[in-house]
């Protein structure tokens, strides 16, 4: 797959960056949640505990990785006109696989993630990576990109999950953090808490960005 000597100047930028950059971009600079604001539904819905957040993040990362790899390797085979439909098919397949895998691992976890495993299909993050990156890059590059984005997504989910679980249930990954009698902030595990926590994380990111811009 080294037919990429004829790239336009527009994509040259991507080539210039090293592989490490491809990976790190998704993790931090173009973080899918905090910067690109993609895939919000699971970010809000299943981050009421750290465990759920982690599981969801990993599941998404897995689907992202697999579909990126497949899309990238099939990119010369899929005609442009049916590419979106094909990507959806591929993604849906891996989501179904993940769904069964999680059910096999733990019924309890599957229950608490609920329909949101299935809803990974419509996570805009995955489709947008397939469309914007995997369909134009080598398998290796796409893998790195998926890994970066996946880890970034998981990281973001954990950011929310940890805050919501610590305040909302007084524990982290199910382990109690505080002495008995801690007052749980129940709002944090309610839907509204999801909105607020994400809003505040975005706010912190903005402040950070602003600080960096001024210094």
């Amino acid at each position: 797959m080294n037919k990429h000597t004829d790239k336009s100047g527009f994509f040259a930028a991507l080539e210039d960056s090293s592989s490490a950059d491809t990976f790190l971009r998704g993790l931090w600079k173009d973080n899918p949640v905090f910067v690109q604001v993609l895939g919000m539904c699971p970010v809000l819905a299943v981050t009421n505990t750290s465990m759920n957040a982690l599981a969801m993040g990993l599941a998404t990362a897995f689907v992202l990785l697999m579909s990126n790899v497949l899309v990238s390797s099939l990119r010369h085979f899929i005609p442009k006109q049916v590419r979106i439909a094909s990507y959806i098919l591929i993604i849906a397949t891996f989501v179904t696989i993940t769904d069964y895998a999680i059910m096999a691992i733990s019924v309890e976890l599957h229950k608490s993630l609920g329909a949101f495993i299935s809803l990974i299909v419509v996570n805009c993050l995955i489709l947008s990576r397939a469309e914007a990156f995997a369909s134009k890059n080598t398998v290796g590059q796409s893998m790195l990109d998926a890994l970066g984005m996946g880890v970034g997504f998981t990281f973001a989910l954990l950011c929310l999950g940890v805050v919501r679980e610590v305040l909302g249930s007084g524990s982290i990954f199910g382990f109690g953090l505080f002495p008995d009698g801690f007052q749980n902030w129940i709002v944090m595990i309610l839907p509204a808490g999801g909105f607020f926590t994400l809003a505040i994380w975005l706010l912190l990111f903005n402040i950070l960005k602003q600080k960096r811009a001024t210094t």
């Binding site: 709002v187 509204a192 909105f195 607020f196 809003a199 975005l202 706010l203 903005n206 602003q210």
Partner: peptide, 22 residues
């Protein structure tokens, strides 16, 4: 405020609405 503008503000409103819908 500049840092709230955009998605953060929308989420904030959504949060308050979510509370109201309770």
């Amino acid at each position: 405020p500049g840092v709230v503008k955009g998605t953060a503000l929308t989420l904030l409103i959504a949060g308050i609405l979510s509370l109201s819908f309770m």
